[in-house]
Design a protein around this nucleic acid. Sequence first.
DNA 1: GGTTTTTGTTTATAATTAAATTTAATTAAG
DNA 2: CTTAATTAAATTTAATTATAAACAAAAACC
Lengths: 407, 407
Amino acid sequence: MTTKWQTGSFQLMKSMNRSLILNIIRQKEPISRAEIAKLTKLTPPTVSNLVKELLQTGIIIERTLGESSGGRKPTLLTLNGENFHVIGLDVGSKDIKVIITTLSCKLLKKKCFPIPESINNDKLLELIIDSIHSIKSSEEIDEKKIIGIGVAMHGIVDPEKGESVFAPNLNLHHIPIKAVLEKEFDMIVKVENDARTMSLGELWFGNGMSSESFVCINVGRGIGAGIVINGKLFHGNHSISGEIGHMMIDVNGPKCPCGNYGCLQTFSSGPAIAEGVKKLLRLGHSSLIEELAENNLDKINAELIYDAAKKGDQLCTTALQQAGYYLGIGLTNLIHLINPAQIIIGGGVSNAHEFVIEGVRKTVSQKALTESAKNTEIIISKFGADATVIGAVALILVELFSSKSAA
Amino acid sequence: MTTKWQTGSFQLMKSMNRSLILNIIRQKEPISRAEIAKLTKLTPPTVSNLVKELLQTGIIIERTLGESSGGRKPTLLTLNGENFHVIGLDVGSKDIKVIITTLSCKLLKKKCFPIPESINNDKLLELIIDSIHSIKSSEEIDEKKIIGIGVAMHGIVDPEKGESVFAPNLNLHHIPIKAVLEKEFDMIVKVENDARTMSLGELWFGNGMSSESFVCINVGRGIGAGIVINGKLFHGNHSISGEIGHMMIDVNGPKCPCGNYGCLQTFSSGPAIAEGVKKLLRLGHSSLIEELAENNLDKINAELIYDAAKKGDQLCTTALQQAGYYLGIGLTNLIHLINPAQIIIGGGVSNAHEFVIEGVRKTVSQKALTESAKNTEIIISKFGADATVIGAVALILVELFSSKSAA
DNA sequence: GGTTTTTGTTTATAATTAAATTTAATTAAG
DNA sequence: CTTAATTAAATTTAATTATAAACAAAAACC
């Protein structure tokens, strides 16, 4: 145990209480000092002192008086969210999504920039910088209010260095995002894997608020997992945790681009579903999708399959259900290993959730070993395709609201 | 986040520092106050005050003076381990192992009691009680010094209730171990799953001391995992984490007693290895093991296979290597999910590690996706078959040395 | 209008850590 | 052999912070 031991100190004590109060305000705003004291079990003076400091930093403000229930009217406190803005990016395989929000994640502006076919590290970094400049200088935005930039990136990310180690869908290696952005914009920059930002977004603004141990599954071109344990994002030793897409569930199964056999990704990812449908069509099966794709197999992708399924096509419905079945196998393995209270499914597939999720739930309840495992709550992210970029914003909020930060 | 928020308070501060000092003494004994202050970055008076309290409780004592390096000789402090004893039990499928040790896990006495073929909850509890009485009243033992009983149990355990929920190898359900033992012996009783106690033992006394995020794999009749994250045992939401034995790695593979197909356990557990060998023999393959088993297939078990392999038998060697291969698949999946710094393999199979572990390592380095994953350290527990029962002792030490406890 | 309730502040106190000082013991240098 | 320097431990004093209790102000209720 070569731990960096945490010693009990005055600073720690104060910093714990400050972040405690700040987080209570964030979650329960508007709220009075007295209410905070009651909820946190801190004494009123302690709350008053720390609130005074927080007011000075400007991160919270006093609002109008609230309604009394038989006594002095409470002075309500809220985050001064409007005065602090955060930029979030989602660097996907086809485009870069940029948003700017308040501290409460109220969307102020959203833009999208396509990534050209042929790209290299420098061009991508340039594109990222341009996209940030573009949203920063929008008319409605006061640039001085921006406090940080969070970046979500698919593939393997080293969040400490702030580097994209490998982005398979762009086929790029070692992109020093954090270093470059910090130099360009001179503010906090955080970089994280997309599945992990997704779960952070859920933790701060989504379904995760009711639970503190859950897993987010990001199903799209790949399949990634973001693991939250005790209200904290779990990274693992070298930040490669959550690579559920390459969980081998059929060692004698089909070959995966990664070189192994029977990876979950070869069954349940968007491209895998499309490939399966194409194969059936080539074998002579017929489906509504042929019409939708104008009889061009190359035009078939997961979205089109979803459209066809929605229109009642049996072949496509079955394909999606089967993807759900295999995803359920993978999730059962995950449940048996880390036993989360909740699993939240998001990413591209969440559009087609009505067809997929039943298969997932059914498989888990069939294959899991114990009652509690069978009953693991499996839900769909309510943020849909934006889950990742919202998580990117949350990356910065963690910095701001966490214990160490002095606001 | 419905967390029980921890407020910063004087008690917390002091309790953190006390446990910090206690743990430093445990790990570095003998050690002087000045040295503690240097290591912990606490100030000398803080250390002196807390050491005074700890001396009063009797848990530590002042030893002879140490060597000076040019100044006043330091007063060395050590745990008063000899004055506090802990009982550890390992309730396996065939027998109950009981040990009694000092706080430093120095073995004082060890006993073993066979579990009869037909058993029920009451009989098992009686047997457990008798075994504890037996070791308690040994001549060498001063009963007054015993402070707690730790119990390791295979299968699904609810550590909060202190109950064995399901013990597959004994086919027993809902055994209220903690309640019964606390009533009988009136001291701290902790009950935990065997793989998890194993990893706790490694954390406190074994290989885990150099790392704070690792996984212990207990391979025997079943396969279980104990996960340690940031120096803490990980339980998951309903304490069923670590059920790696039923990770499905071949969905179209052989049926497992659990009802699913292709569980890791059907490839790499002791019984599975034996079954595989028997099958080959029935098909007419020949092996040295026929001689060792006196041509009685029923006598073939994992241990005998290991003996044969050690004598150079090819069939048995291959069988063990193949078990290692599949275990490697399971561990690769685990590495991709939770990315531990280290994997420690123990349990029955650790006897045959020379044949198994190479297969495991080779598979992981072939199948893992990144360099760091490939290089995950995979080692054998140095405690061998005793790893579990040592962990049972550690269960009590956690209580004693953890932050909340006032010793 | 008086009483009660609620909110928030002030004042004083207690529990700690933090810093500076003192005492003691030992070694090394002169 | 003496003295200075060094290290260890204990003690004193100061600073920091939470806590407790008292208090003031405002509103609601009777």
